[in-house]
Design a protein around this nucleic acid. Structure first.
Lengths: 230, 230
DNA sequence: TTTCAATATTAAGTTATTGTTAAGTTAACT
DNA sequence: AGTTAACTTAACAATAACTTAATATTGAAA
C-alpha cells in the first residue's frame, strides 16, 4: 500500500512558530506548506487542498476563527481537519473555536510531540479509513457515512440525529447535560426550543431501540452499554 | 419551595445597551442592576455581590478587561461569573487579554435569547461545582454517569439524592450541617422546608443501607466508612 | 426519667422535566 | 421552482422527582 504523505498547511503570523512546526513535521515525513495570514491561508488551501490545517487563533487582519469559518464554507475542503493553535486554554477561545468548526485544539507553547501525535492520529484516520467509527459491539456508528449498524443492518440517520447519537456514544455511560448537547451539536450561538432535543432523542430511540439511551431526569441523557448478565 | 432571583450586574457605557438588556432580563425575573463604567461597576459589585456580571469589553476609562481583573481580586466575588460583551471580529485578536478570567462571551449585536440561555446555564453551573468520581472501597460514586456501585452492583440515583450522597461521601467522617447541605446541594437561591433533607436521607439509607449515613443530632449528617469487623 | 426539640417515617400532594404527537418551517436537492 | 426530507415548534400528556404535611420516634439535656 503506497500512501501519499499527509498534506498540512500551517497558518501563523510568527515565522518562528512556522519554522519550528515545519521542521518537526517535515521530519515526520509530512508534506508541509505554510501561510502567514488568514487570507493567504484561504488561497493556499484552495489550491493545495491540505488534509490538515493548523491555524493560529490570533493573527492580524483575519484571525483564525474568521478564517476557519471561511474555510468551512469551501466544499473542496470538506475533508480537511482544522487544528487551532492558541496562547491559552481559555474556555472562552475554545468555545469560539469549536463554534467555528474546529476539529481539535492545541495550546501554545506547542509541544511538538503532542502536536505530532494529534496529527498522526488524524492522518491515520484519513489514510487508513480507520475513520470515525465508534464500535460499541452491538452497534457501530460511522461518521464518514453517517450510518449506524445494528445487527448487521445499516441505518442511515439524518445529520442532527446522527451527531446527537455520535456524541452520546462517544462516551458510553457519561451523562451529557442538555447544555452540553446543545453546545456540541448545535453550537453555542444557536437557540432552539426546549423540546428539540427530546424530539431527536425520541426519533433515535424509535430507530435504535429505547434501551440504548437513558434519561437521567434533571441531568441529561446517556448512552448505555448493553449490560452483560452474570 | 421558593427561589431567590439570580442577581445580575450589567456594565456598559452605552445606555441603549443597558436598557435593552435590562428589559429582557427583568422580564425573565432576574434581579438586574447596572453601571456605566468600570469603576462604578466595581463599587456596585462590592455592595451588591451579583451572581453574574455582564461586562462590555470596550468602555472609556477602565475597559472591561481591566475591570474584570480588578473584580477577580475581590474575594467576596469569588463565586461571581463574568460574561463579556464584545463586537465580533474587532476583539477576537485580543483574545489573549481574556486571561482576565471570563466565563463566557456574547457578541454584539446581542441576541437576548442567547444571552438568557447562557445566563441560565451559568447559574446552573454555579450551584453544581462538584467534581467527579469518588472511590470509597465498598462504594463508588460516579458523577459522570450518576451511578453508584455497591458490591459490583450499579444503582442509579435521582439527582438530589445523588448529589446529597456525593457531598457526604466527598469527605467521609466529616459532619455536614443542614445549612451546609442546603447550600451545596440546593444552592443558596432555593428555600425548602426542614424535612426535605431528612426525606432524601431516608431514601438514600433505603437504597445503600443505613450504616453508611450517620445522624449527629443537632449538628448534621456524616458519611461513615464501613469498618470491617474481624 | 422526663422532657422536648430534633429527626424519622410515611404517604400524599406538587412541580419540574421529559415524552409524544402533529403540525409548522426551513433547507436541500432535483 | 417544486418536492421532499430534515428540522423545529407547540401543545398537551405522562411521570419521576421532589416537597410538604402530619405524625411518630429518638436521644441528649435537665
Amino acid at each position: 500500500m503506497k500512501k501519499l504523505p499527509t498534506k498540512i498547511l500551517i497558518v501563523d503570523d510568527e515565522p518562528d512558530i512556522i519554522e519550528i512546526l515545519k521542521y518537526n513535521l517535515d521530519k515526520e515525513g509530512y508534506d508541509v506548506k505554510s501561510a502567514n495570514n488568514g487570507k493567504k491561508a484561504i488561497e493556499k488551501a484552495k489550491k493545495y487542498i491540505p488534509d490538515i490545517i493548523i491555524l493560529d487563533v490570533m493573527m492580524p487582519e483575519m484571525d483564525g476563527i474568521e478564517a476557519c469559518e471561511e474555510l468551512k464554507k469551501i466544499s473542496k475542503l470538506s475533508n480537511t481537519r482544522i487544528i487551532f493553535l492558541s496562547a491559552r486554554g481559555e474556555d472562552f477561545t475554545q468555545i469560539a473555536a469549536f463554534d467555528a468548526g474546529a476539529d481539535d485544539y492545541v495550546t501554545k507553547p506547542v509541544k511538538p510531540k503532542i502536536l505530532i501525535k494529534k496529527i498522526s492520529s488524524i492522518s491515520k484516520r484519513i489514510n487508513n479509513n480507520l475513520s470515525n467509527v465508534l464500535d460499541l459491539g452491538d452497534i457501530k456508528v460511522d461518521k464518514e457515512s453517517y450510518l449506524i449498524t445494528i445487527n448487521k443492518e445499516d441505518i442511515s440517520l439524518p445529520r442532527k440525529e446522527f451527531e446527537l447519537l455520535y456524541l452520546l456514544a462517544s462516551k458510553p455511560g457519561k451523562v451529557f447535560s442538555r447544555d452540553e448537547i446543545m453546545a456540541k451539536v448545535w453550537g453555542t450561538q444557536v437557540i432552539v426550543g426546549d423540546r428539540t432535543i427530546d424530539v431527536h432523542i425520541r426519533k433515535l430511540r424509535e430507530k435504535i431501540g429505547d434501551k440504548c439511551i437513558k434519561t437521567v431526569k434533571g441531568v441529561g441523557y446517556k448512552f448505555k452499554l448493553n449490560v452483560k448478565k452474570k
